[in-house]
């Protein structure tokens, strides 16, 4: 943080730049953010484009190429770089399809919990009083029920479709956003611009939606990158428990759960998807923590 702090001191922040602008600029100046972003974009591009042009079908069974080891182990075969599974399906292609579902669920879930959590938090913090007390006790109650219990209770009996998974994960994640947004909104109530609008006769709703929300939400939204990674892990956990998107559609969770049986003689079927997910999430987390550090620096007035 010292080097970025020093760099920022040398290059004075331009007047009029909003905190979220400064935060983004500070994050982009960090090497870990750039590495994470580059790696992530590369992986996403491959996951989105390669299945479209590749002749390999991730769900097609081909016994003649079953259990091929990954490159560079002896006996590997082009184009199965990460090997094949017990039914001859390409492990790499299955990872890519898994990543598509993982991203879809991770990003949509975070959007959902961000919107619901921020709306409730904003209302609670800005209005105060009874609404505040009720919403905050609800977040406490929600936080004291571990997500995984809720998820298996609901998904264990209803068909685990993509919308159901998103809904259940989103349900468990909203309280953290509600709390953070409430805390910031609380402090915002007495700021000059809010009082000014009030004097001009603006309604609470108008001030909340048009002025407070745009002022406080962007920094929180950037750090939500970290939660996308967390939700992608949860999606994999649900898949592993058999409560995610169902086979034959490959997801990280159901592929690894299935590959457990073949661990001793074909270690790569379970190992490779996990590594693939780990690399993707590390990229996301590097971006997220760089953004978080940038936010802390901006809040402390270092930049």
């Amino acid at each position: 943080m010292a080097e970025t702090g020093a760099a920022a001191a040398v290059r004075p922040a331009p007047r009029g730049a909003t905190p979220s602008r400064r935060m983004l600029r500070l994050a982009v100046s960090r090497a870990d953010f750039r590495i994470g972003l580059a790696g992530f974009l590369l992986l996403v591009a491959i996951a989105l484009l390669l299945p479209l042009v590749s002749p390999i079908n991730p769900t097609k069974i081909a016994y003649q190429v079953k259990l091929l080891p990954p490159f560079p182990a002896e006996g590997w075969q082009w184009p199965h770089v990460l090997g094949t599974d017990q039914l001859g399906r390409d492990v790499f292609m299955r990872c890519l399809v898994g990543l598509r579902y993982s991203l879809l669920i991770g990003i949509t879930t975070v959007l959902l919990m961000f919107v619901v959590g921020s709306a409730l938090g904003l209302y609670a913090g800005f209005r105060g009083g009874w609404a505040d007390a009720v919403i905050m006790r609800l977040t406490d109650a929600q936080l004291s029920i571990p997500m995984i219990i809720l998820a298996i209770t609901i998904l264990g009996v209803s068909r685990p479709t993509v919308p159901a998974i998103i809904l259940v994960l989103g349900l468990s994640g909203w309280p953290l956003y509600a709390r953070v947004v409430r805390a910031v909104a609380l402090g915002e109530r007495t700021r000059g611009y809010v009082l000014g609008e009030r004097v001009l006769g603006a309604s609470d709703w108008r001030i909340m939606l048009l002025f407070v929300a745009p002022a406080i939400l962007p920094p929180i939204a950037f750090v939500a990158v970290l939660d996308v990674a967390r939700m992608m892990i949860y999606e994999a956990i649900l898949g592993f428990l058999g409560l995610g998107v169902q086979p034959p559609t490959p997801t990280f969770g159901n592929v690894i759960a299935d590959a457990r049986k073949y661990l001793l003689n074909a270690w790569w079927i379970a190992t490779m998807p996990g590594l693939f997910l780990l690399v993707t999430l590390t990229c996301l987390n590097l971006m997220g923590s760089a953004l978080e550090r940038a936010r802390n620096a901006v809040l402390q007035g270092e930049a």
Binding site: I256, P273, L278
Partner: peptide, 9 residues
């Protein structure tokens, strides 16, 4: 890296 590691895996 640790936070990116799926626990079951």
């Amino acid at each position: 890296v640790f936070v990116s590691t799926p626990n079951f895996w």
